[in-house]
Design a protein around this nucleic acid. Structure first.
Lengths: 229, 229
DNA sequence: TTTCCGTCAATCGTATACAATTTTGTTGCA
DNA sequence: TGCAACAAAATTGTATACGATTGACGGAAA
């Protein structure tokens, strides 16, 4: 992903992205170029380039002369992202049932074990790991373009969950991850797709049920935006 | 796409992207920040930001301390992009058969007419229009995220065609565009998907048959790279 | 008290400057 | 002639500077 790109820009980009996904930086939060730059000991030039990349991926939005903010996807946008995610991941399953590298199952099962290791806790790590399982699935297809898009929508889904979901409890999710692996290994594409659809539907459902943003600042900033514009 | 960013960066980005798609800037060509900046009368700061965006979309690659180049997708990468395009566009058809705005057919037919208007000529305009038909289809789904990804892969396919295809003659393509519209209007999802698959297959086939890059400079740069690294 | 307007601080948009790195050209030598 | 080493030019990576825009605060008028 970061190719052989400029070290500093990619470093800032990686850190900001991780902070957003792990909810250290919450949706709606401002990201002043000066502040971020001082924090990391780099100039605004670097931060700005990282922000451009983050905006392209939908994790950050910028308003002219106002600066960058962690994205707060609307419910419509969230719906669209989930739809695209479902489209892509269904096809990932189909491809994997057709062709999967030898080490694939080992990698997947190892990842699930990592997930089970942090199962009780409801922290940022489990959020990140849950997403990374799906990204790993996509990478195993060998199609890097597909994997990149899957990674993008999975990350944005993590952001959406942090906005709309009350709890990230992914207890059932981990179990479903195992079921997906089993179904792929059995070559039962349709069953695997069914589990994945159900899995994503559950994730999406948890987001939609808790329709209210759970942070006061998100609510306020939302109302504030309506007043302003 | 460019959001509310009426900035210089977006202007340079748009111009460069158009130039790449229309093959004014050919794959492998260098894009020195100075030169581009002088050409458009802006500083390197602006150009660099535009290049960052173009790289994120896969139209440009940059090598550290070496600068930016118009992307030269390998055949493997081209294959992957076509695969993702097929996945996305099939789903676009399915969605449109399910729901399509009233004005949809008018917009589509108007676009096909524009394509037929430039049918004889084999110039950059027809290349752009052919791609824009598919982007328009995606936009009609109402799913902006989906539309954005479709636009991205379509653009990259245009780049691939300019690398690997001997001729861009899209005579049959225009006709197939009409057939796709008809099938959608008739509500025959599977037939529409069949036509689209065949359509994309033909495009992909034209690219693969002419497996040799048709520009000497592309060949040389490829050999050059092998020697250096 | 409320509303309007002006000033001000904060922050961005852009250009430029300097350092670091790569590429190129040239010279000397085998 | 061919190769190696060194010097010069070109180009990128990063930081800083300055003008421009925005939003906030506060005072004055209705």
């Amino acid at each position: 992903m970061s190719d052989s790109k400029s070290t500093l820009t990619s470093a800032v980009y990686d850190l900001l992205r991780k902070a957003i996904i792990e909810q250290a930086l919450k949706p709606g939060m401002r990201l002043p170029e000066d502040t971020v730059g001082e924090q990391f000991g780099v100039s605004r030039t670097i931060v700005r380039q990282a922000l451009v990349r983050l905006e392209n991926e939908g994790l950050v939005v910028t308003r002219r002369n106002r600066g960058a903010f962690v994205a707060e996807p609307s419910k419509e946008e969230a719906q669209q992202i989930f739809e695209v995610r479902r489209i892509l991941e269904m096809e990932v399953i189909r491809i994997l049932c057709d062709r999967i590298p030898q080490s694939g199952y080992d990698q997947l099962r190892a990842h699930v074990q990592k997930e089970q290791g942090v199962l009780g806790r409801d922290g940022p790590v489990s959020i990140r790991l849950a997403g990374e399982f799906h990204i790993l699935l996509a990478e195993l297809t060998g199609n890097e373009v597909l994997a990149r898009y899957v990674a993008e929508v999975v990350l944005r889904c993590s952001l959406i969950m942090s906005l709309y979901a009350r709890s990230h409890s992914s207890d059932c999710a981990v179990d479903e991850h195992s079921q997906i692996i089993d179904a792929i290994e059995a070559g039962e594409a349709e069953r695997a797709i069914g589990i994945m659809t159900h899995h994503l539907g559950a994730v999406q459902g948890r987001a939609e049920l808790a329709a209210q943003p759970d942070s006061i600042r998100a609510i306020l900033s939302h109302y504030g935006r309506e007043l302003v514009q």
